[in-house]
Design a protein around this nucleic acid. Sequence first.
DNA 1: TTGTATGCGTTATCAC
DNA 2: GTGATAACGCATACAA
Lengths: 342, 342
Amino acid sequence: MSKKTTIYDIAKALNITAATVSRALNDNPRISSDTKKLVLETAKKLNYKQNRLALALKSGKSKNVGVVLPIINRNFFSNVIRGVEEELNPMGYNVIICQTHDDEKKEADVIQNLLNAQVDGIIMSIARHTKNTGHFEQVLKKNVPLIFFDRKVDIKGASSVTLDDYRGAYEATQHLIDQGCAKIAHFTVDRSLEIYKNRFEGYKQALLDSDIGFNEKYLLGLESKIEAGKEAAKKLMELADPPNALFSASDLAALGAIQYLKEIGLCIPEDFCVVGFSNEPFTQFMELPISSVDQSPMLMGRTAAKVFLEQIDSDTVKTKKRIVLAPSLKIRKSSSRSNPTL
Amino acid sequence: MSKKTTIYDIAKALNITAATVSRALNDNPRISSDTKKLVLETAKKLNYKQNRLALALKSGKSKNVGVVLPIINRNFFSNVIRGVEEELNPMGYNVIICQTHDDEKKEADVIQNLLNAQVDGIIMSIARHTKNTGHFEQVLKKNVPLIFFDRKVDIKGASSVTLDDYRGAYEATQHLIDQGCAKIAHFTVDRSLEIYKNRFEGYKQALLDSDIGFNEKYLLGLESKIEAGKEAAKKLMELADPPNALFSASDLAALGAIQYLKEIGLCIPEDFCVVGFSNEPFTQFMELPISSVDQSPMLMGRTAAKVFLEQIDSDTVKTKKRIVLAPSLKIRKSSSRSNPTL
DNA sequence: TTGTATGCGTTATCAC
DNA sequence: GTGATAACGCATACAA
């Protein structure tokens, strides 16, 4: 109800001008410590709060950054947001969240919206089927830092923070080989996305680097769902020469596979080893904890935020960065023959 | 790089005034359809985008709402945000996320910050130990709608959307009684928070309404963690007359209890029934799926957002609302003696 | 050290 | 139907 107090109110109260008040509030060097003190006092007395909107309009900096991602209520994405928020909030930035639901049109819409809102930067993971990159170029053309995380697209001027999916997959597969598994299957999701393509490539290369070799029949594409994992596992076990290990690019699919394998009486990890990807919380809660590749999503968020801060500081050097984080294989019982205590 | 185009640019291009352009852009009735068409065309040609900041400063409405919560990377909270975002985004609002880490000072800080940013409303769940309500009253004094969800505090002028925790707990306990359990324990977390207090009360009342009665020795306070659940279960089973069922206000603690009970050789649900609270994703993924009370967090978020929209529309009637959502007991194997197929 | 004037991009209130 | 002008709240270049 009470009219918001502005610098004019406090100027009037002190019989000085708004400019002086502004200077006092901003620690401007050329101001007498007397008036400064006076201003600060009455500012507090009048319960003055700076209107960030006015400042934003004036300065052209909104102190907001947009975070755009497919969907927020997934462990990976919400952790990334947490990382971003915790890095940016202390620096005076607010974080605006937008979901694309993996829809390209919606993605373009929210980006346009963020641009209209004058965000100082955009941190995002692209929608699943985005082909057109026009809306990304819009961002860069307006000189707004654009940082991709996890799912990126290669655009000149954009930065990215990703996981070394290739290495994660390679290590997971190598681990399975080390456990004595020679017939290792792979669940892939959507290889038109770099992350899944890289996971596949890492898997394949690990096999090629061993004396096992890559076998097309052990490769299955599916959705990241439990049921899909069950069905795919069924297909695998009905092969003439079924596999004895699985590296799944999806934790949920890995879980589904495990459920099926148990149903048909297999012992894990004795008869069959399984490694998933993402290190979803449930993987460690299971009676049979599932090995998985951790993506350190919070660190990814923090790192993306740091890249943004660098870019915003040095608008002289347009240093687009490509940061690749190291994966971390969490070995648990589902693939641990050598260490039964896990 | 390219200077942002304003209504002045398009005014200049057409040899008219900015006011006219503004009117054309806003479908003002008193404008010739000719100029309107012309304006729209050149607007598109010059790639004009409205600067929401300027509009915000002028109108006093930022079209942003703040969502304040303890921590974002938890299933419950990220789902609430999703609900809020999906309800508000189509109405032209952006959602700003702030975490309090359950710290009262931080909570006061982010709220002040949001107020400075001129948010049009605040949707929040209070920090765990917040006692002082000064920062909430600040919000209301500025006439900014304040809607609590889940964890609320009773303040005149603030709305709230909560779950009927009492009923959820009552139904869970009743369900355990129906399964033939007569000695039902309860894990509570922090009864200084309404939600946990209500869960306890619902549990207690269900017992009192049956011929079982409430027994203090079956009540244990703990943290919402697996280890805590294990330890508490151990304590319970070391009682002279150990219980044969558990209603836990925390899913994680319920999981811990189950792990311990299995360790000592008990069969679930034959020997011991367990129901948790929150319906965390992992509860349904387990080999032994855990019964739990669902809080419909997405609906909670959507509802809170709707309340905000109502409040913003009718600034005439200050109708504070108190909405209580119905819980939904998910019965799974951990408590299902009657239906072994679960 | 302080005051004056101006602009950030829009919309609203006057006039014409 | 359109133009001129003020205002939102703040910061700054320029004067004094």
